[in-house]
Simulated scan of single mutants.
Amino acid sequence: MSETGWIGEAPRDAGFGDYFELLKPRVMRLVVFTAIVGLVCAPVPVHPVVAFAALICVAAGAGAAGALNMWSDWDIDAVMKRTARRPIPDGRVTRDEALGIGVTLGAFSVVMLALFANIFAAGLLAFTILFYAVIYSLWLKRATPQNIVIGGAAGALPPMIGWAIATGGVSVESLLMFLLIFLWTPPHFWALALFRNEDYVRAGLPMMPVTAGPRSTRNQILGYSLVLVPVAILPAFTSVGGPVYLAGAVVLNVLFLRGAWQIWWRDEPEAEADRYRVEKKFFALSIVYLFLHFCLFLAEAGLRAAGLAAAGWPTLT
């Protein structure tokens, strides 16, 4: 493999889909969704046109971070089974193209968000892109088993960006949304790392199961889950929560804690047929867990808006 990031012959002409894949669209969807929740739950109304334009900027910023991550991780992606078919190691896009797209999209998204919304929201977006593309991808990911813990801050910032688009600042509520994602990230990714351990060993990445072993990783999954549960329930008692959020969050966190306990409790080794079955179930549950928490935020925001409308209060200025 050469420094251009492809193997063998020069890459074929790339299509739109190849370049779009560079932007990590699945991650982008999660970023935009949590940013929408932060924006909708904020106490300051935003004109729909401004909100739409601002969210396009957030999506572009997320795509820029994804492209820069693929640019930096081309050598890692090439040796891991789940990433070997990404555009750069698969020979569809060069590293230079990924770098150009990432830098251009990143600059565009930050400047335009400053114009459509405010400087503070744009600054948060710029910090998120730089933290993910530079601090996490170029440094933490290859340097420490705490990479996911520290690097999780980048993925936790979008709801704060959405809140800042509306308000120009932060609040207890947006910080709790940040903490929900931040504390969810280690159990979520360490469950993945347990059943993808061979990939990380082959890539030479210091993920927790590689450096500390499965037992220590399971201990930490349970530990972070115990800290996460009260933080995830706490928003119910703030302006973005309510009885619907409280009821849903209690159920979700009981299920999450049960899954973390099952991971911690199980013995090593298990029969090959059951290998990592518990971890895979917990990983799938963790995705639904986060998505539904933010759906509950939206449900509460919808109920508040309906109540204001019924009372004759304007909901848009």
Rank of each mutant, 00 (worst) to 15 (best):
T83Q: 14
T83K: 12
T83F: 13
A84K: 12
A84H: 08
P87C: 12
P87I: 14
I88M: 03
I88P: 01
P89C: 09
P89K: 06
D90F: 14
G91D: 02
G91E: 04
G91V: 14
G91F: 11
G91I: 13
G91L: 04
R92F: 14
R92V: 15
V93T: 07
T94K: 06
T94A: 05
R95A: 13
D96W: 09
D96F: 09
D96E: 11
E97Q: 15
E97Y: 08
L99F: 14
G100A: 12
G100K: 11
I101K: 06
G102C: 08
T104G: 05
L105W: 10
L105M: 13
G106I: 06
G106D: 14
G106A: 11
A107V: 15
F108K: 00
F108N: 01
F108Q: 00
S109N: 01
S109R: 00
V111C: 12
V111Q: 12
M112E: 07
L113A: 02
A114S: 08
A114P: 01
L115H: 07
L115K: 14
N118D: 01
I119Q: 13
I119H: 14
F120P: 05
A121Q: 02
A122R: 01
A122K: 02
A122P: 05
G123I: 03
G123K: 00
L124M: 15
L124C: 04
L124K: 05
L125M: 14
L125E: 10
L125V: 10
A126W: 03
F127H: 07
F127K: 08
T128C: 03
T128L: 01
I129W: 04
L130S: 13
A133K: 01
A133Y: 01
I135Y: 11
Y136R: 00
S137K: 09
L138N: 06
W139K: 08
L140E: 11
L140H: 05
R142P: 09
R142S: 10
A143Y: 03
A143S: 15
A143R: 08
T144H: 12
T144E: 08
Q146K: 11
Q146S: 09
